[in-house]
Amino acid sequence: MYPIAKTGLIIEQLPAETIVYDPKSHQAHCLNQTVGFVWNQCDGKTTEAEIAKRLPDQIGLPADPDIVRLALGELSRAELLTRESIEELAETFPSRRELARRLALLGASAAALLPAVSSVVAAKPGDTRSGPEGDGQGNGGNGQGGNQGGNSQH
């Protein structure tokens, strides 16, 4: 298939990560280096196999199509590909655990490049208003509570 990246997104590039904000869904995503690279190749003219062949030179990973397929799966779940691309992708993706094991055999640096996307939902203005003022609990003054917000990592 020729995957196509969704457009109309706000992108900030970090040295080894890509931040993508979808102004329609108000979700923000952090793509690791591998997923960021694969996403950049999704121009509608490049096949998965061609993207895989570029991995060694660009990322330092083997030309393993499963790496690309897993990255496309992450992008699909984060809805960072066009609807047509998502529908075209097969529903079965390579085992993340199996791929992690294979990359681990190549070393820690390769294992760290396992395709990964972290996502959060941007708060609506009223969502961030505190409840009753203050935090903390007990005479020791140490607080109790939980960090809010949908934070997911694919």
């Binding site: 931040i19 952090c30 793509l31 690791n32 941007a122 934070n151």
Partner: peptide, 16 residues
Amino acid sequence: AGRALLNLAQNTVSIR
């Protein structure tokens, strides 16, 4: 840095 940025974004009042 990317995940730190996400955390900040999640806690930013008027990001939308």
